[in-house]
Simulated assay, not measured.
Amino acid sequence: MRTLIRLFGTALIIAGLLVAGLATYQNWQHDQAYGRAQRDLRAQLAHPVTGHDEPAVATGTSRTRAEPRPRDASALAVLRIPRFGSAYHPVIVEGVTQNDLAKGPGHYPGSAMPGEVGNFAVAGHRTGWGEPFRKLNTLVRGDALVVAWRGRTYTYHVTGTRTVDPADVGVVLPVPNKPGVKPDKARITLTTCADRDPLTRAYTHRLIVWGERDDH
């Protein structure tokens, strides 16, 4: 009986090591794929599509004429957060599907574009797939959030953070949590997973970071 117990215990340990090893390998694969996707996205930004996608001349905080919305999964802008260091500059993609977020932080379709009056809302992974928002919980009020888009740079500053239920979609409204209210300033919202539940080890809530442009 003791021998059987030892063998069973050894089998459990081996199984645990195999599961951990597989998870580590899968995370490595995801990170490698993220790196390749980011390189491709940077190439897109370096060689933008011309013609019908040619941007209008921007004036103040809005564009002078309506422009086509960006294509799903295409490179949109570059995000810089000085608190995270000079090496932090992920390319934001258009869209927030799982496939989109595997490439980089994703812009919520239909939300404002960078620098516009409204809410420029972006989601990103906290763990895996490059972990672009891993340190989002370290941001504090006043931290800069810099978005480079179509030759212009827009700087927002953090105004607050909150942990919410995943079903709370009001956080990405044009005026967060105020349905139907017309926006009067350019805002940014970053969303990601909050800390794991200490009991289930699952990500059950979302971390929200809000910011506003203060240079217009």
Rank of each mutant, 00 (worst) to 15 (best):
D31M: 02
H47C: 03
L41Y: 07
V49I: 14
T24L: 05
G170A: 03
R65T: 15
Q32G: 12
T10G: 14
A46P: 03
K135Y: 10
R83H: 10
A112R: 06
R206D: 10
E212P: 03
L12V: 13
R2C: 10
A11S: 14
H89E: 11
D165T: 08
S62C: 06
T24D: 07
R69S: 11
T24V: 12
H205K: 14
I208F: 07
L4S: 06
L12K: 09
H89D: 13
V122R: 08
T138P: 01
P176N: 06
P90T: 06
G115T: 11
A11I: 09
G130M: 09
G104S: 07
H52C: 10
N99P: 01
T189R: 09
V209C: 01
R150W: 00
D143W: 12
T3C: 07
L136R: 13
R63M: 13
G95K: 10
V19G: 04
A20G: 02
T191S: 15
N177T: 12
A144F: 03
R162N: 09
Y34T: 07
L136Q: 12
G115C: 08
E94A: 09
P55C: 00
V175N: 00
R42W: 03
T159M: 04
H125N: 14
A77S: 14
V146P: 10
G110E: 07
N137Y: 13
V93I: 00
W149E: 06
R141A: 11
V169A: 15
P179S: 05
M113A: 12
R65Q: 11
P114M: 13
A46G: 01
T191V: 15
I14R: 14
G128V: 11
A194P: 01
I14V: 15
L173C: 03
K178V: 02
V19I: 06
R6H: 04
G51K: 13
Y156L: 08
F8A: 15
A144V: 00
T59N: 07
R201I: 00
E116R: 06
L45C: 04
I14S: 05
I5G: 03
D165E: 05
R126Q: 12
T59G: 04
D195Y: 02
V164T: 11
A23T: 10
I188K: 01
G104R: 05
V96N: 03
T138F: 12
D184K: 05
W129G: 03
G106D: 07
T50G: 06
I13R: 08
L190W: 05
L139T: 10
A11T: 15
Q29I: 12
A15E: 03
V146G: 08
L207Y: 12
N99F: 01
S86K: 04
T189P: 13
F8Q: 01
Y25V: 14
L139D: 05
T3D: 15
D197V: 06
L199K: 14
A58Q: 15
T10A: 15
G128W: 09
A37I: 07
R63W: 14
N137P: 09
V164N: 10
Q98F: 11
R71A: 10
L7I: 07
G211A: 06
P48K: 03
A112M: 00
R69N: 11
V91E: 02
T163M: 10
V19A: 04
L136G: 00
Y108L: 11
T97Q: 05
G180W: 13
N177Q: 02
K178N: 11
R206C: 09
A56R: 08
V78L: 11
E94W: 00
M113H: 12
L4E: 13
K103M: 06
R80D: 09
